[in-house]
Design a binder for these strands. Structure first.
Length: 490
RNA sequence: CGGGGCGUGGCGCAGUUCGGUAGCGCGCCUGCUUUGGGAGCAGGAGGUCGCCGGUUCGAAUCCGGCCGCCCCGACCA
C-alpha cells in the first residue's frame, strides 16, 4: 500500500497503471475512500465533472423525448425474485434491509441494484391502452451492488447513475429505442468526454440479467484494458410478463408491453481519467472541466499583488461573461509553483498567468495543460488576444484529446485472422487492447478463452466497426459465423 | 473467497529483530521575510502506536485472538 507522499509525484503510468490511477484520483481530489467498505466519497472536483456529464446527458435524453422521474431506493425482495435471470444475476450482490423501525420486517427490502422491477410494476399501474405508450422515463439515482472487489469510480458498492426505462407497444419500437440510446451514449462519449467508443451487441454470457439483448459502448483505456462505458438493453417482454405490464391494442387485444433499460454511471469519471490522464495528473476535456481556465495572479509586494489580483478578477469576470468557466485563484499563501502543480494535477485545460512583468508589457501568459505537435506550452500575448482566443483554444484541445485517444485505441487494436486461443493470448500479451476475430457463436469457446486469457467478448461490433474483410477463421477453431471484439476488461 | 501487503499525530513513514515510556518528512497554527515551477527562518499545536486479552517491574516492540483497509485474482457497471 505504498503511496507517494501527498503533493509529490505520481507513480508513472508505465510503471504501474493501477497505482497511478489510485493516486491520481485521490491527489486530484476527485474522490476519497470512506468509512464504508467499498463506498467512496465523491469530492467537489470529481462531483463537478459528474455534474457536467449529467447536464449534457440529461439534455440529450430530453431532446429524445424522455422525462425524469424518481422511484424508491428500496425494492421488495419478492419483486427482484420475479424475473428468473434477473434474480440469478443480482442475488449475489444484493444488500438487504431486514429491520426497520426497531422491528424485523415482514418482507425484506433490497437496496436497488437497478430498478427494472419496481419501475415496471408502476408502469403496469399506469398503462392501460396503447395510447398510454410509449413511456419514456429516466431517473438519476444511486444504486448498490455488493461487489467483492471495488475501485474508486470504476467499481464501488454504491454508485451514481442514470437509468432509463421505457415501455413500448411494439418490439420494433423498443428495439429502435435501445439503439437510439446506444447512439446517444456514443455521441456523448465522443463529443463531451473525447473518449472514442465502439458499439455493438453483447454476447449471451455478457448480456444484462433479464434482457433479450444488450448493447454496449466499449472504450479502450491507456493500459489496453476495455471499459464498458454504457449499456442499453432490449428487455423484450420479460419484465412486462412478470409485472403484468399489459395494454389494450388498437385492435382491442390485451398485449404485453416491450421494455428497454439503459444506463451510464459515475464509472465514466474513471474512464475519463484513464483515457486522458498523464503522469502529471488528470487531463480534462474542456467541455467537462468544472473550471476551464484558471487565472493566476503572481506578485511580490502588496502593491504588486493589488494590481495583479485586480487584473485577475477582471479577466475571470470577463471570461465568465463569455460563458467560459474561469476561476481566479487568489490564495496568497501559496506560491505560484504550488498552484501550477495543483491545477495541472486536477486537469484544468488552460491557465492564464498575470505577473508584474506581464503587467509592465500589457500582456498575459497563456499556458496549456497539454500541448500538441508544434504548439508552445506557454505563450505571451495581449490580454485582448488571450481573451479572444480562449474559446478556440478550448475547442482545439477538445478535438485534440479525441484524436489522440482514437489514435491510441487504433494503435492498440488488432484486426486479422486469429485461429486459436493461444494466438489471442499472445496478441493480448504483446500489447493488443481490442482484438477483432471470428467467432462461431459457441459459448464454450468464449468461456475457455476467458479462463485461459482473461479476455472476454466485449461486443459483436455494430456494422461501422466491423473489419473491411470479414474474418473467416475462428478463435476456438472452426469457421467464423460472426466477427467479435475481444479484450481484457475492467 | 484464495494469494500478498499494511494498520504508529491530518498525510507518508521510521522505530518492532534485541521490551525501558515515541521520532522524522510533509501538512497545520503564529510571526517575519517571500511569491514567474511544489518558499525560508523562528516559535508552536497535535499521537490511549487498529481492538481485546496475556507475559513482564515495565509492551508500539514478545505471545494469543479479533477487526479493518489496500493490492493481485475469481464475480461484476
Amino acid at each position: 500500500m505504498k503511496k507517494r507522499q501527498k503533493g509529490k509525484g505520481l507513480t508513472p503510468r508505465a510503471e504501474d497503471f493501477s497505482a497511478w490511477y489510485n493516486e491520481v484520483v485521490q491527489q486530484a481530489e476527485l474522490a476519497d475512500y470512506s468509512p464504508v467498505r467499498g463506498s467512496m466519497v465523491i469530492r467537489p472536483w470529481g462531483y463537478g465533472i459528474w455534474e457536467k456529464m449529467q447536464r449534457a446527458l440529461d439534455d440529450m435524453f430530453k431532446a429524445t423525448g424522455h422525462q425524469n422521474a424518481y422511484f424508491p431506493l428500496l425494492i421488495p425482495m419478492s419483486f427482484i425474485e420475479r424475473e428468473k435471470e434477473h434474480v440469478e444475476g443480482f442475488k449475489p450482490e444484493l444488500a438487504v434491509v431486514t429491520h426497520a423501525g426497531g422491528k424485523e420486517l415482514d418482507e425484506a427490502y433490497v437496496i436497488r441494484p437497478t430498478s427494472e422491477t419496481i419501475i415496471y410494476s408502476m408502469y403496469a399501474k399506469w398503462v392501460q391502452s396503447y395510447r398510454d405508450l410509449p413511456v419514456l422515463l429516466n431517473q438519476w439515482a444511486n444504486v448498490m451492488r455488493w461487489e467483492l472487489r471495488t475501485r474508486l469510480f470504476l467499481r464501488t458498492a454504491e454508485f451514481l447513475w442514470q437509468e432509463g426505462h421505457t415501455a413500448h407497444a411494439t418490439e420494433s419500437e423498443a428495439e429502435e429505442e435501445a439503439r437510439t440510446i446506444l447512439g446517444v451514449y456514443r455521441t456523448f462519449m465522443e463529443d463531451w468526454m473525447a473518449m472514442p467508443a465502439i458499439t455493438g451487441l453483447k454476447s449471451e454470457a455478457e448480456k444484462f440479467a433479464g434482457a433479450v439483448r444488450s448493447y454496449a459502448c466499449e472504450a479502450l483505456m491507456q493500459d489496453g484494458k476495455a471499459l464498458q462505458a454504457g449499456t442499453s438493453h432490449m428487455l423484450g417482454q420479460n419484465f412486462a410478463r412478470q409485472f403484468g405490464l399489459t395494454f389494450q391494442s388498437e385492435e382491442g387485444r390485451e398485449e404485453y408491453a416491450w421494455n428497454t433499460s439503459w444506463g451510464v454511471s459515475t464509472r465514466l469519471v474513471g474512464g475519463l481519467v484513464m483515457t486522458h490522464g498523464d503522469d502529471v495528473g488528470v487531463v480534462l476535456p474542456p467541455k467537462l472541466a468544472p473550471t476551464q481556465v484558471v487565472v493566476l495572479p503572481i506578485g511580490r509586494s502588496d502593491d504588486q499583488w493589488a494590481v495583479v489580483a485586480e487584473k485577475a478578477r477582471r479577466i475571470e469576470a470577463e471570461l465568465n461573461d463569455r460563458g467560459i468557466r474561469a476561476l481566479a485563484d487568489q490564495r496568497r499563501h501559496l506560491s505560484p509553483g504550488a498552484k501550477f502543480f495543483e491545477w495541472e494535477r486536477k486537469g484544468v485545460p488552460l491557465r492564464i498567468e498575470i505577473g508584474p512583468r506581464d503587467v509592465e508589457r500589457g500582456e498575459v501568459v497563456v499556458v496549456r495543460r497539454v500541448s500538441g505537435e508544434g504548439e508552445a506550452r506557454k505563450e505571451s500575448m495581449s490580454e485582448a488576444a488571450a481573451l479572444g482566443g480562449i474559446e478556440n483554444r478550448l475547442a482545439a484541445l477538445q478535438r485534440r484529446l479525441l484524436d489522440a485517444a482514437r489514435a491510441r485505441r487504433d494503435a492498440a487494436t488488432y484486426r486479422g485472422e486469429v485461429s486459436s486461443t493461444d494466438e489471442l493470448g499472445d496478441l493480448l500479451n504483446e500489447g493488443a487492447g481490442f482484438v477483432y476475430s471470428g467467432w462461431s457463436g459457441d459459448p464454450g469457446v468464449e468461456d475457455r478463452v476467458k479462463n485461459e486469457t482473461r479476455a472476454t467478448i466485449r461486443v459483436i461490433p455494430s456494422r461501422e466497426f466491423r473489419s473491411d474483410t470479414a474474418p473467416t477463421r475462428c478463435v476456438g477453431g472452426g469457421g467464423a459465423n460472426m466477427e467479435v471484439v475481444w479484450a481484457r476488461a475492467y
